[in-house]
């Protein structure tokens, strides 16, 4: 009883301290009302995609932003999660809760193995090793003809007890609940003793060793947690897409996740979600925009997106969240505006 009230008080403090994150998550909760009255059901689909990629990016951000580990292979965990649904159904496992459990466990184990091996290196070697593992898994699934190989396999939306996922709103809110739980969990982790130690390792690993702590333990734990979150996103992704192929773990998706995080704000709770919103909205709108001006170039929307990304990185150190924060600070307190960030 007092444990629960204590937990709620802690959660309340955390939510107050991370308004932007919960504003965004709250926004997703009411978004279907808007699409219903505006009669734009297509946008529910976009919102689900944003939530899924945002969730995965939030997971990656724990190691990339907070832990300073540049993992270039996190799409592999999304893929493993998604294939847990596909392969699970192939062998007659149709229960969605079981898929989630399986996806998270398998991703946790894979995260442990890959993390244990890759985290012995750092810098460019770490980037390359994580990429190599992701590529290995990519080609493994390409070669598994039994599970569709290159073409992938189509998926029936899983059975979640009373929740019929063919009702699009139920799928939407299943994803939303997962997103909110991931946000809540990460909010606790980042502020906890473990979280500040992870951030301190990013800041100065040798000082953490000098305090008698083994940095590798913390880094591997962070890596496993982020892998599990990406696995959860992957399970839901497969249900949303009703299809899974090796494409889901293509290395460009790992890059996409990194772009989303950097765009939104490295090492911030709200950054990855904000980044996912902006990234996917631009992905939707830039081709249309370009199509109106120069139809032949509509598919080359990246030509506009690239400079935009560069500008955000150059002028808003700390991404979009950094831009918002410095703006708030300079309007409320001109003196501190420059020093803060």
């Amino acid at each position: 009883m007092s444990g629960l009230s204590q937990f709620l008080a802690l959660a309340g403090d955390g939510i107050k301290a991370n308004r932007l994150l919960w504003l965004l998550i709250g926004g997703f909760a009411v978004f279907p009302i808007f699409t219903h009255f505006a009669d734009l059901p297509f946008w529910n689909d976009v919102a689900m995609r944003i939530m899924l990629l945002g969730m995965a990016a939030m997971g990656l951000n724990l190691v990339l932003g907070y832990g300073g580990m540049v993992s270039f292979g996190h799409a592999a965990f999304i893929g493993i999660g998604a294939y847990c649904v596909g392969i699970g159904e192939f062998y007659g496992l149709t229960n969605g809760w079981a898929h989630i459990l399986l996806g998270m466990i398998v991703c946790g184990l894979m995260g442990l193995i890959i993390g244990y091996l890759a985290l012995r290196t750092s810098g460019i070697y770490f980037i390359m090793i994580t990429l190599a593992f992701a590529q290995m898994l990519f080609f493994l699934f390409v070669s598994l003809e039994q599970f569709g190989g290159d073409d992938g396999m189509s998926i029936d939306r899983a059975e979640f007890g009373l929740i019929d996922l063919y009702d699009p709103l139920r799928l939407y809110f299943l994803i939303w609940v997962a997103l909110a739980l991931v946000g809540l969990g990460l909010m606790f982790i980042v502020r906890s003793r473990f979280g500040v130690t992870l951030r301190a390792i990013k800041s100065n690993e040798s000082r953490i060793e000098a305090m008698g702590l083994e940095p590798l333990r913390f880094k591997i734990t962070g890596y496993v947690i982020s892998a599990v979150i990406c696995g959860l996103a992957g399970v839901l992704f497969a249900n949303w897409q009703e299809y899974v192929s090796p494409d889901i773990m293509h290395w460009t998706r790992s890059g996409e996740l990194m772009i989303i995080i950097i765009l939104g704000g490295l090492g911030t709770l709200a950054g990855p979600l904000l980044g996912a919103i902006v990234f996917l909205l631009l992905e939707e709108s830039l081709p249309m925009l370009l199509g109106a001006v120069a139809p032949a170039y509509a598919e080359n929307w990246m030509i506009l997106f690239g400079p935009l990304l560069i500008m955000v990185v150059l002028f808003g150190r700390g991404g979009l969240v950094g831009l918002i924060a410095t703006r708030n600070q300079s309007t409320s307190n001109q003196k501190r505006g420059k020093a803060g960030q």
Partner: peptide, 12 residues
């Protein structure tokens, strides 16, 4: 020896 805890905020 408390660095491996995940719930309570450390800095407060």
């Amino acid at each position: 020896g408390q660095s491996f805890r995940f719930l309570r905020p450390a800095f407060s």
